[in-house]
Design a protein around this nucleic acid. Structure first.
Length: 536
RNA sequence: GGGCCUGUAGCUCAGUCAGGUAGAGCGUCGGACUUUUAAUCCGAUGGUCGCGGGUUCGAACCCCGUCGGGCCCGCCA
């Protein structure tokens, strides 16, 4: 069988390199995590799954870059963080609700800035079925794992400098040294290296203080372009997906490749992926607050839908995340696919190569979408659209299940379905829910909708008003009134409904009106109908 | 300046690596269900594959050029 899904292609390439694999992902916990970061880790997770499917041994690791310094005081931080700029994220206190440093928890529990942002992300990962081995980078420095590579670099800074300058095309300052020592205050900024005798790097800091940094004890860190290839080595990384920022020519992967070999190991198999942007708002960025967090996204959609989004998009394809109609369409697409018997469809010998590839690709994406690798997500047979509708009309869950029992043969709602309804209600209450999907009954006539109505339908409104006035204000009564109005005005039911939607909802189509109108005030609705009939 | 990704049906995208009759889903339109809980089912509609050249018996696919979109080359997934 051909390898069609991107994850299978990666697995195949890994198989050519060996049997044992460690797939790495890495993120700097400098601010709130967002679904862009989810692409990083899910891409890794899916490669691991594909590799195991191909009979390889594979493990997912998540390098937490908590040795990276705080770059600036982000909008969600108080000015107190000014003092921490340049300090490592794993060694400064987390912000509290007001953005002030929470010294108490930092001192009693050791809860760092990095932990603060990492925790909710890990929670989201658990929900989404990703269970990576965590590798906090600060610990790696402190336990001396970087020592060997660091020594290699510090023993021959010119070689490293040559690689970076040649490959990236940028010139490094004269003072550049392949180790950034922590200064007298614990900052990585503004430190000048004055000498090196293994294992000590001597420095003078911005405060005029002099000191020495032991590279085997993590009293500093490697610059990013060395940090990355160094940890490929001691962690035995064989594959790593990364964002396009690292993948650019002359970027950190390019220099990393050569530096890794200088350190004495092969670089991992790369996979560059595109970024996720928010529809209409550009790239997501933790620092600007232009984000949708994984937790927030999971409150709205089930994990399998998020996984499906990543699995079904080729890594080099930019994703526009849309919490409105895009999500509805995505969810319904997932639902349709999972309801199909792809196995059976693929056994059809008359399929063209093209059709076959498409089916196989979707089948692979669908399998990867399940948070639980052991079990495929079963089709709920209820579309997102339909559930959105029911959730708006029925106030209690019991009514929703009763309706589904009648219309969709759902006797006993599965846990999956209950879960979906719960998320659906959250979504409807949020600002993300698309207006297009929102059921609104008008209180004043929609001039626009009435004008859009074909001329021969306008007189029908009068019949409608009469019929509604004469029938009981119940679901059955209203439905009977519709029928009566259609007969007395010689209109087909289809056309009558079109008229009704224009009158009551200002739209061309909509859900069954009987039950909805029955929940509305009779007088208000009759007044609305009358007003409409007088307008046309 | 250097480089990467991208342009295929109204929309979202497969198909490009291994050239062989242009594919899905959505949407739209029509029909069915004695008309609809935006449902479901059936059917139809729809593309000079950005543009121009070249290679080839044959090009969406390979090569050259060109235009448009996104992005990277200090940090960012």
């Amino acid at each position: 069988m051909n390898q069609v899904h991107w994850s299978d292609v990666m697995a195949q390439r890994l198989a050519e390199r060996g049997q044992d694999h460690i797939v790495a992902t890495g993120i700097t916990p400098s601010g709130e995590f967002h679904i862009g970061h989810l692409r990083e880790i899910l891409t890794g997770d899916m490669i691991v799954r594909a590799a195991r499917k191909a009979g390889l041994k594979a493990q997912l690791v998540f390098v937490v870059d908590n040795a990276d310094p705080l770059r600036k005081v982000y909008p969600f931080l108080s000015d107190a963080y000014q003092a921490f700029i340049g300090h490592q994220l794993g060694s400064i206190p987390a912000p509290d609700n007001d953005g002030h440093p929470d010294w108490k928890r930092f001192e009693t529990e050791g809860r760092s800035y990095a932990d603060h942002f990492l925790e909710p992300f890990l929670e989201a990962l658990a929900q989404i079925g990703v269970h990576p081995t965590l590798l906090p980078n600060l610990d790696a420095y402190q336990s001396g794992k970087f020592a060997a590579s660091t020594k290699r670099a510090c023993d021959d800074p010119a070689a490293i400098r040559e690689i970076i300058e040649r490959v990236s095309g940028r010139e490094l300052p004269e003072s550049w040294f392949p180790w950034q020592p922590l200064d007298s205050q614990g900052s990585l900024d503004g430190v000048s290296v004055t000498g090196y005798e293994y294992p000590l790097v001597h420095w003078t800091d911005a405060h005029g203080v002099e000191g020495s940094s032991d590279i085997t004890k993590g009293e500093g860190k490697l610059p990013w372009r060395l940090d990355w290839p160094a940890k490929w080595g001691f962690n035995g990384i064989t594959c790593e997906p990364f964002g396009k920022d690292h993948g650019a020519a002359g970027g950190s992967y390019d220099t990393g490749k050569e530096i890794a070999r200088f350190f004495g190991h092969e670089p991992p198999l790369p996979l560059t992926y595109e970024w996720i942007s928010l529809r209409g708002q550009g790239a997501m960025s933790s620092s600007t607050g232009n984000t949708v967090g994984p937790i927030e996204a999971l409150a709205l959609v089930p994990p399998e839908i998020l996984r499906f989004l990543i699995a079904n998009s080729k890594p080099n394809k930019a994703i526009e995340f849309d919490t409105g109609m895009g999500l509805v369409n995505l969810a319904d697409e997932f639902e349709r696919w999972s309801a199909r018997d792809l196995e059976a469809e693929l056994s059809d010998a008359s399929l063209s190569r093209r059709q076959r590839v498409q089916l196989e690709d979707s089948a692979a994406a669908l399998a990867l979408a399940s948070p639980d690798i052991e079990k495929a997500v079963s089709a709920t047979s209820v579309s997102f659209r339909h559930l959105a509708l029911l959730a708006q009309i029925k106030t209690s869950d019991a009514e929703v299940w009763a309706s589904l029992a009648a219309s969709h043969n759902v006797e006993d709602p599965t846990d999956e379905l209950r879960d979906r309804l719960r998320r659906m209600r959250t979504w409807i209450d949020s600002t993300h829910f698309p207006e297009e999907m929102r059921i609104t009954v008008l209180s004043t006539p929609s001039k626009q909708a009435l004008e859009a109505l074909s001329p021969e339908l306008r007189p029908v409104i009068k019949h409608l008003h009469v019929a509604l006035s004469d029938h009981p204000w119940t679901n059955e009564g209203i439905t009977a009134a519709f029928k009566f109005a259609a007969e007395s005005s010689q209109t087909s039911m289809r056309q009558l409904y079109r008229t009704c939607y224009a009158v009551f909802m200002g739209q061309e189509r909509g859900p069954r009106l009987g039950p909805i109108l029955a929940n509305c005030d009779r007088t208000t609705m009759l007044d609305l109908t009358l007003a409409c009939s007088q307008m046309v």
